[in-house]
């Protein structure tokens, strides 16, 4: 699980072009949206692509993304459950 979380942080930084941010800057339980990383609605859609491309997990309703992408913890949990 911890490995997955570190992997996710690296992938998010890479895919969303968060140049000034390092994995250490992203706390596992901190909100990804809102003030946190300054992500917006297009980033949310790009995270859906990320989950499918790197983790083989498909989200068909972008509304579900809100809960899943609330933090690194929630993303990791969702991926683990979906693959179980």
């Amino acid at each position: 699980m911890e490995n997955l979380k570190e992997e996710l942080k690296k992938q998010i930084i890479e895919q969303l072009n968060l140049e000034d941010i390092t994995p250490a800057d992203i706390k596992n339980d901190a909100p990804l949206f809102g003030d946190g990383l300054g992500l917006d609605s297009i980033d949310a859609l790009e995270l859906i692509v990320l989950l499918e491309k790197f983790h083989g997990v498909k989200i068909t309703n972008p509304e579900d993304g809100r809960k899943i992408f609330s933090s690194i913890d929630s993303m990791a949990e969702y991926i683990t459950k979906a693959k179980a």
């Binding site: 969303l16 297009i42 859609l45 790009e46 692509v49 499918e52």
Partner: peptide, 11 residues
């Protein structure tokens, strides 16, 4: 190629 149309590129 990557089979994942990118929303952030499309815009």
């Amino acid at each position: 190629e990557e089979h994942a149309p990118s929303p952030s590129l499309f815009v």
